[in-house]
Amino acid sequence: MDWANLTQQLINGLSLGAIYALIALGYTMVYGVLRFINFAHGDVFMIGAFAGLYVHRWLKPLFHWMPDFLSALIVLLLSMLICAVIGIVIEKLAYKPLRQRSRLTVLITAIGVSLLLSYGTQLVCGAAPKGFPQLIKNETLDLPGVVSMTTEQVVVLVVTVLLLISLRFIVQKTRMGLAMRALSNNPTAASLMGVNTDAVISFTFGLGSALAAAAGIFFAMLYQAIDPFMGILPGIKAFVAAVLGGIGNIAGAALGGVLIGLLETLVVGYSKNIGIPPGFRDAVAFVILILILMFKPAGLLGKSEREKV
């Protein structure tokens, strides 16, 4: 066993997993309050990356005056803000009129929104992949053994952990978080107790979209190129992560994301040893999804729930 190789693969997998985790949170939160899969969430992730690209382009003259981490932070926060607004607008225009309709109707609308976002971006920005600027000076840090980690990977992991901690704070310690939990637990009771359902739903969409935007920026930072259809696969894999962890469960989404990121990387890295061609990478998440739905539909951390009549 080559430990250095394994450690390296784990580091690579962990940073990919962090991105899946951030996207998965959006799926899980929206599912928690509205009980539907926001199919367009992966495209919000893509918009986040594009927002980062353009914010960086517009503010470039200003960035000469400040250190790297500050300008990167500004790009990150502005993109998160932009996506939060987009998320809220999408909910108000497309999903809100459908609150009482069947899940299928909402799903189709979500597919429509997804297509609109990706083809709209293609129209505005072109289909060809675009290079993403280096937001922070990227250096390779040598760890013990022949393992290396880049500054970007460190930043992604640290910021993801910070975002997860603040999300936990919002959900557990604030009034808005309480309202979100109440709505998720029992919408009728929550609204009878004076919870402003619309405000909570908007807030949830905003929060989820902001996290997706952060994931988009991190993805673009690590992999340098972005295109209008980059959101489809990570979006679906993140959904699988949310299901794996137990949909509606915030800790579960984070766990599921990290697991999928790790598994995917290990399958590719050890494809020769386990006899699976690396091309099967994209199938990993789906196989997990099918297995989990067949054997433990509630997910790793979720509690099982019967569909009520």
């Binding site: 539907f36 199919f39 699988v240 789906f286 999804l289 099918i290």
Partner: peptide, 17 residues
């Protein structure tokens, strides 16, 4: 065992596989 939106994603997954 699946309903509506879950099924959509599973079939998408099957297609991709």
């Amino acid at each position: 065992r699946l309903r509506g939106d879950y099924l959509a994603i599973v079939t998408l997954g099957f297609g991709e596989i």
